[in-house]
């Protein structure tokens, strides 16, 4: 009798057998985990194999080993080596970096402005940042086509300064893409940052000023260290998706302004070259993981999710 009782354990007030407990736990976790494994983990891993497969004549996949997709990734093709792909990879990183920097520069004043509003109107200002966060990216991006269209004030102004020919639109091009990118990701940067700015200890800022710190020093010594957690989250949720972006560049950038996201999308749609698309996806994945690792270490954050 005693030996029979000893294989029972007490778990959260429930006296039961470990096996029974485990079965019940599996009953809850197994359906979602099978779902995720089957539809996400396995296909994600299959990308590695697919990147080494061959494209068939009609866009089908032939499971025959080749290194050609990776060779093409770094610029080798029938016609010899070209730097085009490096431009695309570099541009993805560069655009994501510039977008992130501009977003940080705008998000600090924006969040400080919201935080210093009186409590009654603060919610209203905050909602102004949340609404674009939840507005569909396609809707927000194509809206720029209207603002930047020919013969409207912004385009006229640019034409007046001789930046574009008279009667032309401000898209497609670099300027339109940056506008689209910054306006897409600004809420992604501002909301996590707001969470940190809200908890700011203002006494430290005052103390810094009392000790004759310059404005710049107040920012680097008093504000930055306090808002680092929010800033780090903001940078990650801006930089990583910005690198993978294809909607904004597709709508506002034209054919000359490709990012790696556009290349991937092309391979899986018009070009029907899945193996090469998989190789590009792996490249993006590696870029994502490296940048996440860097931000994590630099910001000293452990649990980010």
């Amino acid at each position: 009798m005693a030996s029979k009782k000893s294989d029972r354990i007490s778990w959260r007030g429930d006296v039961t057998k470990p096996l029974r407990l485990r079965l019940r736990g599996l009953g809850l976790t197994l359906p979602p985990l099978v779902w995720l494994t089957l539809l996400m983990t396995i296909p994600c891993l299959t990308l590695v194999a697919l990147a080494m497969a061959t494209r068939g004549q009609y866009g089908d996949v032939i499971w025959q080993f080749t290194g050609n997709n990776f060779r093409r990734l770094i610029g080798y093709s029938f016609f010899g080596w070209s730097a085009d792909n490096f431009y695309v990879l570099f541009r993805s990183l560069w655009m994501a970096a510039i977008t992130t920097i501009i977003c940080v520069a705008l998000a600090y004043p924006l969040t400080f402005h919201v935080v210093t509003r009186p409590p009654r109107t603060r919610v209203f200002w905050l909602i102004l940042i949340i609404i674009p966060f939840w507005t569909n990216v396609v809707v927000r991006t194509y809206a720029w086509l209207l603002v930047l269209g020919p013969n409207l004030p912004p385009a006229r102004l640019a034409a007046f300064f001789g930046l574009i020919p008279e009667g032309a639109a401000l898209y497609p091009g670099q300027f339109a893409v940056y506008l689209g990118m910054v306006s897409t990701f600004l809420p992604f940067m501002a909301l996590p940052l707001y969470a940190s700015v809200e908890r700011l200890n203002w006494d430290l800022l005052e103390a810094a000023r009392d000790l004759y710190a310059s404005r710049f020093q107040v920012f680097t010594k008093a504000i930055l260290p306090q808002t680092k957690p929010g800033l780090a989250v903001g940078i990650i949720v801006t930089f990583v998706p910005a690198m993978a972006m294809f909607v904004v560049t597709d709508i506002l950038g034209g054919a000359k302004f490709m990012l790696i996201g556009n290349l991937i999308q092309q391979q899986f749609t018009q070009a029907r070259n899945w193996p090469y698309g998989a190789a590009l996806s792996l490249a993006l994945m590696v870029m994502t993981l490296i940048s996440m690792a860097i931000f994590r270490r630099r910001s000293g954050l452990r649990n980010l999710s």
Binding site: L38, L39, M40, I42, P43, C44, T46, L47, L50, V240, P241, M243, A244, F246, G261, I264, Q265, F268, W274, G277, A278, S281, L284, M285, T288, M292, S305
Partner: peptide, 15 residues
């Protein structure tokens, strides 16, 4: 949560 949307989308296409 970590992987870019487009890679999720590609993986689903594959699945």
């Amino acid at each position: 949560i970590v992987v870019p949307d487009i890679i999720m989308a590609v993986s689903l296409t594959l699945a």
